[in-house]
Simulated assay, not measured.
Amino acid sequence: MLLSEIMDRPVMDTDAAQSIGKVEGLVITARPPRIAALRLKKTNGGGTLLTWQDVHAIGPDAIMARANAREGTTEDIAERAAACRSLPGRRILSERGTEIGLLQDIDFDPESGKVLGLLTSSGTLPGQGLLGIGSYAVVVQEA
């Protein structure tokens, strides 16, 4: 599944069956490359981060999450969220500093949250090559 496919998709509370927000982006960890949280916009109370373990299912029309899931997000996730703001369009650099292209989309497994690939302006890079994400660039292993 691609990030672009879930952007603006409603996130529903499984207990109250009401919207708690819409997907604005992903918070990703590099080691291992996986989704740590969903960034939400237009939230109805609570925070703007939904940890991945609180995501119950990703359906074609909505994402289902546990009630009160946004409470108590950790400082570590909040720190990562700052670096992961606006990932599409970010530069991709090799570990040696060579510019590879621009990040266009992120392919991930909707069950596990594992990052499968980074779609770039110059092709697709394997997710397991992700080394780090900073405010300036995404760093990957050189092929």
Score class of each variant (00 low, 15 high):
Leu38Val: 08
Val55Ile: 14
Pro110Trp: 09
Thr98Gln: 13
Glu24Ala: 15
Ile77Cys: 03
Ile133Met: 03
Gly46Cys: 06
Thr98Asp: 13
Gly101Glu: 04
Ala78Asn: 15
Arg85Asp: 11
Glu142Pro: 00
Gly25Arg: 05
Gly134Thr: 15
Ala83Pro: 00
Glu75Gln: 13
Leu102Phe: 12
Lys42Gln: 15
Ser4Ala: 13
Lys22Ser: 10
Glu99Tyr: 01
Pro10Gly: 04
Val11Cys: 08
Ser94Ala: 13
Met1Trp: 09
Ile106Ser: 01
Glu99Leu: 09
Ile63Phe: 05
Thr74Val: 02
Leu131Thr: 03
Leu118His: 05
Arg39Pro: 01
Arg39Asp: 04
Gln104Pro: 00
Gly21Pro: 05
Ala62Arg: 08
Lys42Val: 02
Gly113Ala: 09
Pro88Glu: 05
Arg34Met: 10
Arg9Val: 13
Leu50Glu: 08
Leu102Pro: 00
Glu95Pro: 00
Ala62Lys: 10
Phe108Pro: 02
Gly47Met: 06
Ile58Arg: 03
Gly25Tyr: 06
Ala81Ile: 03
Met1Ala: 08
Val138Lys: 01
Gly97His: 03
Pro32Ile: 05
Thr120His: 07
Asp76Met: 09
Leu119Ile: 15
Arg34Val: 02
Ile20Gln: 08
Glu79Gly: 10
Leu103Ile: 03
Lys22Leu: 13
Met1Asn: 00
Ala78Phe: 05
Val140Phe: 03
Ile63Glu: 01
Ala78Gln: 15
Arg80Asp: 11
Asp105Met: 06
Leu125Tyr: 04
Leu119Gly: 03
Leu119Trp: 11
Met64Ser: 12
Gly117Phe: 06
Thr43Ser: 10
Gly113Asn: 08
Asp76Phe: 11
Arg91His: 11
Leu103Trp: 03
Arg91Gln: 11
Thr74Gln: 08
Leu26Gln: 01
Leu93Gly: 01
Ala143Ile: 07
Gly59Cys: 05
Gln18Glu: 11
Ser94Gly: 13
Thr14Asp: 14
Arg9His: 08
